[in-house]
Design a protein around this nucleic acid. Structure first.
Length: 522
RNA sequence: GGGCCGAUAGCUCAGCUGGUAGAGCACCGCCCUUUUAAGGCGGGUGUCCUGGGUUCGAAUCCCAGUCGGCUCACCA
């Protein structure tokens, strides 16, 4: 079965019948765009990842590709998100690139979230061209297009009106300008065109600061086209042939349809192939995820628990039109397992091939195994190497340390109840409440551990042997052994369950736990 | 009000252009001398949402309905 990225690549190539420009191969531009109106979350990642995979597929078919991502940071700051100081309401109406960084570490609000996101992309080996829309608008690059749009303002109005449910009016039509003008005095978009003296000269009034100003559209540096017009204009400007977008844009009468019509009728450009994508949910963030709390997951958060190629493979596996939940509960075991399985196949699964990051060779020590060893080795890589050696799979720490770190992050962030940490000090109360026979078990165990450097087999044998003592020959031993294990888990971790004890005692340096088992009876 | 998507095992889902219902997890059983959160092997537990239709044959195609989710219409 053909992978979705290859199908899309074929569609793009098939439509691209135009002859190559003289002197150069035809470049297929795939575009993505995100408005950094707050933290850029994993859902937005789908925009980038879609062109990334499709771009790879096109390249493999031998066509040159340009991948670009627009930071739509000249969009207005519309509302203050939950994690931002409330007094940021004073910046509403300014471009996102002219709002200060609430964390005070980047040149602007937009820059902060852009940087955060770009860092994650880099970690995933995604390299694309970034376009800063503020810079492009302010450079005057789009002046001609703005002029063009304004000269066709009534036609644009008519197109927009066609898709609106509200009735328009001739006054509205007469006064319509397809521009957003940021006030020269206060920087906000609370402006209205008040008069036009020529083809390109306009006067405006700012309702916020009451400033009256004039602009010449030929040279203006503070004017932006509104979304649907902007989108169409940029398709033409960058010769975009493919662009994904959230499914909200895809609906009948939605922005893609409207922009397409503007592109055709106003800018005489054939709209790109559009790939709507479904949104991404989160699984395992019970209670943490809610609109009001403003908690959302950034790619950086996801990368704390997912190795980059594993995260990529999750996106690669799902066609864009499929919604899926990013797994953060213990289903993460399965995600890693499926990755490892697919990754070891020959020929390689397509989604894995697309997710590979040059220079990295993802290893396959099971995530689940690492997660359960987190509690055993207590952060001690050498101890884990020893365990693996004794288990007959002598992995070195370079092989597992990255994934081990992800497992530790996952345990502490999303499964703290499963996380095992050795107790700080001996639990005398618990010990004293035990029966004399149980106390004897612990003492025997301590004597065994304190006097002998044991192998895994010896330790395993011993922990099963101890509860056998003093039992009548026909006793069902299993309940006793279970009790014994439970007691040890309590003394070591304060929990009902724990790792295999033979493994634990044989591998972990004794000084880390021996004092927790040292009790004197009588 | 318009549009889109989904409904299959306890859970998450796969089943593409019709041909005897599948996978992983969970669960149960067994093995590694008895075994716990290492490991290995075996086992499928089902009104394929409902009702019609097309067909030799429908989870699959068509129509209608039920339930759930999303989205548009103001702005980006």
């Amino acid at each position: 079965m053909t992978h979705w990225a290859d199908k899309t690549a074929e569609r793009i190539l098939k439509l691209q019948t135009a002859p190559s420009p003289p002197g150069g191969a035809l470049q297929l531009t795939c575009a993505s765009g995100i408005s950094p109106s707050g933290p850029v979350h994993v859902g937005n990642l789908r925009d980038i990842v879609t062109i990334w995979f499709v771009g790879k597929a096109i390249k493999e078919k031998g066509a040159p590709v340009r991948l670009l991502h627009s930071w739509d940071n000249y969009d207005r700051f519309r509302k203050v998100p939950a994690n931002t100081p409330a007094n940021f309401t004073e910046f509403i109406g300014r471009p996102l690139s002219k709002v200060p960084d609430p964390f005070n570490c980047c040149p602007s609000y937009a820059a902060h979230y852009e940087k955060e996101f770009e860092t994650s992309l880099l970690e995933m080996g995604i390299e694309i061209e970034f376009l800063n829309q503020t810079k492009l608008y302010e450079s005057g690059l789009y002046c001609d297009a703005i002029l063009e749009a304004v000269s066709k303002r009534h036609a644009i109005y008519d197109i927009l009106q066609k898709f609106r449910t509200q009735a328009g009016s001739s006054e509205e039509r007469d006064g319509y300008y397809p521009i957003t003008l940021y006030c020269e005095r206060c920087g906000k978009d609370t402006t209205q065109v008040s008069a036009t003296s020529s083809e390109s000269h306009i006067a405006y009034h700012c309702t916020e600061c009451q400033h009256d100003g004039e602009q010449d559209l030929k040279h203006a540096r503070n004017i932006k086209l509104p979304w649907k017009v902007d989108w169409a204009m940029r398709w033409r400007h960058e010769k975009v042939v493919f662009e994904p977008g959230g499914k909200d844009h895809a609906t009948a009468g939605g922005s893609f349809e409207v922009s397409s019509e503007i592109a055709k009728d106003i800018f005489h450009y054939r709209p790109p192939i559009f790939q709507p994508y479904e949104f991404i949910g989160l699984k395992g963030l019970t209670g943490k995820m809610s609109g009001s709390s403003g908690v959302l997951l950034t790619p950086g958060d996801a990368l704390k628990v997912y190795q980059p190629e594993v995260l990529l493979s999750v996106f690669a596996k799902m066609p864009p039109n499929k919604a899926f939940d990013l797994v953060l509960d213990d289903g993460i075991y399965r995600v890693y397992d499926e990755f490892d399985r697919a990754n070891s196949k020959t020929p390689l699964e397509r989604e894995i091939a697309l997710s590979r990051i040059p220079g990295r060779s993802p290893h396959a020590v099971a995530f689940k195994q690492l997660a359960s060893f987190c509690g055993i080795v207590q952060g001690n890589d050498a101890a884990l190497e020893l365990i693996f050696t004794r288990m007959g799979t002598p992995y070195k720490s370079e092989l597992f340390e990255e994934r081990l770190q992800k497992a530790e992050n996952w345990l502490s962030e999303y499964a703290p109840e499963q996380r095992l940490v050795l107790r700080e000090k001996r639990d005398d109360d618990y010990f004293n409440a035990l029966t004399p026979a149980q106390k004897n078990w612990i003492v025997s165990l301590y004597d065994f551990l304190a006097t002998k450097q044991c192998t895994l087999d010896e330790a395993t044998h011993e922990v099963y042997e101890i509860p056998k003592k003093d039992q009548p020959p026909d006793t069902d031993l299993i309940p006793h052994q279970r009790d014994f294990f439970k007691i040890i888990y309590h003394l070591l971790f304060g929990k009902e369950k724990g790792p295999r004890l033979g493994t634990f005692f044989a591998a972990v340096p004794k000084e880390q736990y021996l004092s927790l088992l040292e009790f004197r009876t009588g």
